[in-house]
Every structure is written in C-alpha cells, then in structure tokens.
C-alpha cells in the first residue's frame, strides 16, 4: 500500500467551498437575509467559473477529459460497482464524473436563475433588469423548484459517497480533505498537478467576473 496524492489543493478547496456556500445560501434565504444570500450566490458563480477553468486547464484528476466517459461506460461501471465487481481508485469514477457534470448544470441553473430573480420587496438579481417582470417571476419560481432538484442530487451524491465509505471501505471524504489516498499500486500514468499559482489566477478571474456581475 502506498499513499499517493490524488487531489490538488484547488480542487479540494472548490469542493468544500461549494458545500459551505450552498449551505450558507440555503440558511440565508430561510432567514430572509436576501443580501447575504445574493453574496453567497455570487460566490457560487465564482466557484463554478473556476471549476470550469480548472476542468479544462487544471490538474489531471480535475480535468473533464479525465473523468467524462461515454454514458454507457459510466452505466456499466455503476452496475458493476454496485455489485462490488469493480473499484475506481484515482480521481472521479466514471459514474461520479457524470454526477459532477449534472451537479455543475443544476447549480449553474440555480445561480443563473438567481441572477434574474426578484423578491417583490426591492431585491432584484444582478441581471433581472434585462428581462421582463413576468420572466423574472417565472425564473424566481424555477429558482425555488430547482433547489429541490439540487437537494435530491445532493442526496444521491451522499448515498454514493457513503456507499464507498461504508461498503467499499474507501474513505472518499478523508481523501478529499487530505488529497491523499492509500493505493495498492501507483497509477500507471503519473498524475499531473497544475501549479498552485494557476489556481490562484483562475480563482481571481472567476472572482472578478462574479464581482463585476454583482456590481
């Protein structure tokens, strides 16, 4: 058994920041703190933009091409994995890869609909002036409905994660905290880890873009 670095700091930061921001966005809207809700929404925009950049130019385990496979391959993996016939050790597994894409799309819709939404009490999303009031109202409704979809997906994600932790005895949570994992053998192809500075640059670009929308 060998301890190998799987996840870079930027990917780990993205994941846990995403968790915290989704929780904070939910908490603030539940407590009528709309201004803070908007701020967390814009943080989520920055995180998504960063993740897309990192998926294209980041470390190998974070890149889309590393984990997006044909849906049939992903489905076959899922079937075999549930029967404990296969185990994926490095990066996102084929089924999990699609979960990432779906998660990005659902959260993406959530933040975009939020940008066009209003609360009839003086709050309007950053782009709500670019659509009619009726359209803004519709997107506000969809913003609420999509959150239920997001909750269902988060539930599915947690079921999968704990399947690994409890059944497969592969502690994904710990790996995503430390970035390292005990492997039976080192990966055939050495993993590439993008420089930390590149992560900072992308984070800055994403942050500036989100702040520009906010202002």
């Amino acid at each position: 058994m060998k301890k190998v670095k799987i996840w870079d700091g930027a990917t780990r930061f993205f994941h846990w920041a995403l968790v915290l921001n989704i929780f904070a966005a939910w908490y603030t809207i539940e407590n009528r703190l709309i201004d803070l809700h908007e701020i967390f929404g814009h943080c989520l925009i920055a995180l998504l933009v960063f993740r897309v950049c990192w998926g294209l130019f980041g470390s190998s385990t974070a890149r889309f091409k590393h984990f997006i496979v044909h849906p049939i391959v992903a489905f076959r993996y899922l079937k075999q994995s549930l029967r404990l016939q296969v185990h994926h050790e490095v990066g996102h597994n084929p089924a999990g890869g699609w979960m990432i894409i779906i998660m990005i799309l659902v959260i993406g819709f959530q933040v975009i609909s939020g940008l066009f939404s209003n609360n009839d009490l003086g709050f309007s999303g950053a782009l709500s002036d670019y659509v009619s009031k009726d359209m803004s109202d519709t997107l506000t409704q969809l913003h609420g409905i999509n959150f239920d979809i997001l909750l269902a997906i988060i539930w599915l994600h947690l079921v999968a994660v704990f399947f690994y932790v409890l059944v497969k005895k592969d502690n994904l949570i710990k790996t995503l905290l430390t970035g390292k994992k005990q492997l039976t053998k080192t990966p055939d192809t050495p993993l590439y880890f993008a420089p930390f500075s590149l992560g900072i640059i992308f984070m800055l670009i994403a942050g500036v873009f989100s702040y520009w929308l906010f202002k």
Partner: peptide, 16 residues
C-alpha cells in the same frame, strides 16, 4: 472477479 475490501462489514444490500 469480485472486488472485496479487507474490512468489509456492511453489505451492499444492507446499505441500500
């Protein structure tokens, strides 16, 4: 070939 972890305690069936 079935993959089995050394300390498997909870079966997939029980988990689901």
């Amino acid at each position: 070939m079935n993959f089995k972890t050394p300390e498997q305690k909870l079966s997939a069936k029980s988990y689901f």
